[in-house]
C-alpha cells in the first residue's frame, strides 16, 4: 500500500461560471478507509464541491488527487476506471431503463470476465432489487432508488465512494437502513465522502466531519467532537430543536 491519501483536493476552485466560482479554494485530505462527512448550510457549495471532484462541474483552479494521481483534467467517464464513484443527490438512476439494465450498463465498463460475478455480488447485496430485475427503475420508491444508485456506483468496486445527501427525502426508517449500509460498505474498505444535511446521523457513522461555508472550509474535526459542539451547530447549521435534546 502506498502512503498517498485516498482522495485530496488542493486549493480547489470550481463552479458554473469562471468569474463566479462557488467553491473557493478547498484543501481536504481523506485517508484510505476513512468516512468523512461534509456538512454546512444550504447553498454552501457542498454539492458543487463533490460534483467538481466527480467531474460534472468544471474546475477553474487547484488540483484533485486520487490515490496520489492528479485527476483534475481527467474526463468524467475515466474517473470511474480510476476508482472514483459518485452518487448524485437527484436523478441518480436511469428511470427509463430496467433495474437490471441500470446495473448492467455500469458493469459494461468492466473487463468481460468480471461482469457476471460483480452483478451477482450486487444482487446478493441488494435482495430487494434482485427480486425484480426487469422492473423499470422509474417505478421504484425513493429508498429503493437510492439503493439502486449505490449499487450502480459500487459495481465497479471503487476505492472512493462519494454520495450527495443520500438520505434526502427518505422516511426516517429508510434513512437508518441507508446509513447502516454505508457504514458496512465503509468497513469493507471503501473510502467514503458523504455530503449530508442529516447532521446527527452522518456524524454517528463518520470518522471525521468538515464544515463548508460559502465555498470554503470553516471547521474540521473529529466526528464525535463535532456532534456535541452546540456552538457550531448554532453557527453553521441553524439551531435545530432535535440538537438541543441530544
Amino acid at each position: 500500500m502506498s502512503e498517498a491519501p485516498a482522495l485530496a483536493t488542493r486549493g480547489l476552485v470550481a463552479g458554473y461560471e469562471r468569474d463566479l466560482p462557488i467553491v473557493r479554494g478547498i484543501d481536504l485530505t481523506i485517508g484510505k478507509g476513512e468516512l468523512v462527512a461534509i456538512l454546512g448550510p444550504n447553498g454552501a457549495g457542498k454539492s458543487t464541491y463533490v460534483k467538481a471532484i466527480a467531474g460534472t462541474v468544471p474546475c477553474f483552479g487547484g488540483a484533485i488527487m486520487l490515490d496520489g494521481k492528479d485527476i483534475t483534467a481527467m474526463p468524467l467517464h475515466q474517473r470511474i476506471s480510476a476508482g472514483l464513484a459518485f452518487v448524485p443527490q437527484t436523478e441518480n438512476i436511469f428511470a427509463s431503463l430496467s433495474i437490471g439494465e441500470n446495473l448492467q450498463l455500469a458493469a459494461d465498463v468492466l473487463p468481460k470476465a468480471l461482469r457476471a460475478a460483480r452483478l451477482e455480488k450486487m444482487w446478493a447485496m441488494f435482495p430487494d432489487l434482485a427480486s425484480r430485475p426487469a422492473l423499470r427503475a422509474g417505478q421504484l420508491s425513493g429508498g429503493q432508488r437510492q439503493m439502486l444508485a449505490v449499487a450502480r456506483a459500487l459495481i465497479v468496486e471503487p476505492q472512493v465512494l462519494i454520495l450527495d445527501e443520500p438520505s434526502a427525502g427518505l422516511s426516517p426508517k429508510i434513512v437508518s437502513s441507508v446509513f447502516a449500509m454505508l457504514q458496512s460498505i465503509n468497513r469493507s474498505g471503501v473510502t467514503i465522502l458523504l455530503v449530508e444535511q442529516n447532521v446527527k446521523a452522518a456524524l454517528a457513522i463518520a470518522d471525521r466531519g468538515v464544515i463548508l461555508v460559502e465555498g470554503q472550509l470553516r471547521h474540521e474535526g473529529n466526528a464525535a467532537q463535532l456532534a456535541t459542539d452546540p456552538l457550531l451547530a448554532e453557527l453553521y447549521l441553524g439551531a435545530q430543536p432535535e440538537k438541543a435534546s441530544a
Binding site: Y16, E17, G43
Partner: peptide, 10 residues
C-alpha cells in the same frame, strides 16, 4: 448556459 441543470438548485 446552465439553465438546463439548475433544476434542483435555488
Amino acid at each position: 448556459r446552465h439553465v438546463e441543470n439548475a433544476g434542483d438548485h435555488a
